[in-house]
Design a protein around this nucleic acid. Structure first.
Lengths: 223, 223
DNA sequence: GCTTTTACCGGCAGTCGTGCCTGTTTTATG
DNA sequence: CATAAAACAGGCACGACTGCCGGTAAAAGC
């Protein structure tokens, strides 16, 4: 299976399911466009001001949309949050796959482990991931959000795991190692990101990234 | 240097600096007591409802203290937050050292690496750490908090690094490895904790903890 | 062409958190 | 005992956010 089709399949599995039929009418097109603007605005708020700052008023102002229109598209704050969650999860996967396959094509498959680790560390430092992180963190103390986000997050994980073997056929022999390497990378990179204010961005962080790569490599080489 | 004195020195370096002179008068004692109750209440709020839920009203109600008394001890919300930060950092170190030295004494020094990794993973799952985590996360998007918390957090890191070599004299030969092992553990455990809603608490997490220990052990054995 | 639907507007009441302020009680001081 | 200084109580005004509702203009349906 080609890179392109793997990527497409993974993305379509996580794609937001709002207006699947392509909007034919003018009005619907404009509506969908406004809706998307609002979701993007929600993501922006999330990144810049955190989940607590993701407020209907702030989003409306940021998007230059009236509060009435806001309410028309998303009757309640949580409804907007739901759309933001879907969008963020989609964007996160999109961003990683984009980077990963581009780098893979450019640098060659023999550097697979190194490229995967680097791409993931890069993807963790994007705005898309910042939004995802913010939701993860807020869901720890906000039960309403948790009920909405955690199932979505687990579903993301399941899709990811399920498709990973397609993207990394080299690992087929030691499937458990791949899963473990994945989990280590996810956890370690999130921890590294959150420790940035303490660790800084210099040598200390570079060494950690080196360790991350070494672990994955050893799991790749091991039986 | 004995375990006890190392522990005392580390703790005194991070101890909250409010009423250093021991309160002699009745009134001052009661005042300090109420203040401490409020700080504890703030930590509770932080754990249960997140940083956004750490509100003066909530703390006052939780502690059964009037809003007036609240204002008397902490004129502004941020003032309370400052006290909470100091207390949380102190408690975090206290909790880890308590667990670590207890386990070390009980199970013997030859299991040092294993004990240290386990103790840290345990310490990460406590309420004290949950409060620390909540502050770390909130500081990402709240500039006011960041200005207060990040310096304190860095100071904690410096004290920790500086004293670590006293607590682990076996590592003196490869000081860099100790620091790296420490950083890996910090980052990985935080990431693991945050991935708990996705990873669950079963085999998947246990394997990660095993990897963490293995990394530290290999850094310990390596030159 | 007329009606219905749809997208959008702006205001209103209710809730909550904050900071401040004026009293009241209790303890220390001379 | 008088006075000052604390610890503490509770009310008030302000601002922010939420959810909802009546109204308008444009597009869709018949």
């Amino acid at each position: 299976m080609s890179h392109r089709s793997i990527k497409e399949r993974m993305l379509s599995a996580i794609r937001p399911t709002h207006g699947d039929p392509p909007p034919a009418r003018w009005q619907q097109r404009k509506s969908a466009q406004t809706r998307q603007r609002l979701v993007d605005g929600g993501v922006q708020c999330l990144i810049q001001r955190g989940y607590a700052g993701l407020t209907t008023a702030a989003v409306a102002e940021l998007c230059e949309v009236s509060r009435g229109a806001m309410h028309h598209h998303f009757a309640t704050r949580l409804e907007l949050v739901g759309a933001v969650i879907e969008h963020v999860l989609y964007q996160r996967m999109h961003r990683f796959l984009e980077d990963y396959f581009t780098a893979l094509k450019r640098r060659g498959e023999e550097l697979l482990v190194e490229i995967a680790c680097e791409s993931h560390w890069q993807s963790v430092q994007t705005n898309e991931y910042a939004a995802y992180l913010e939701l993860t963190l807020a869901a720890r103390t906000d039960v309403e959000l948790a009920e909405l986000f955690n199932p979505a997050s687990r579903r993301y994980d399941q899709i990811w795991i399920g498709e990973m073997i397609e993207a990394f056929p080299q690992w087929k022999a030691h499937w458990d190692n791949l899963k473990l390497a994945n989990d280590v990378t996810l956890a370690l990179h999130m921890g590294m990101l959150l420790h940035r204010p303490v660790f800084g961005e210099g040598e200390r962080m570079a060494q950690l990234q080196q360790v991350a790569t070494r672990i994955v490599q050893s799991l790749y080489d091991a039986p």
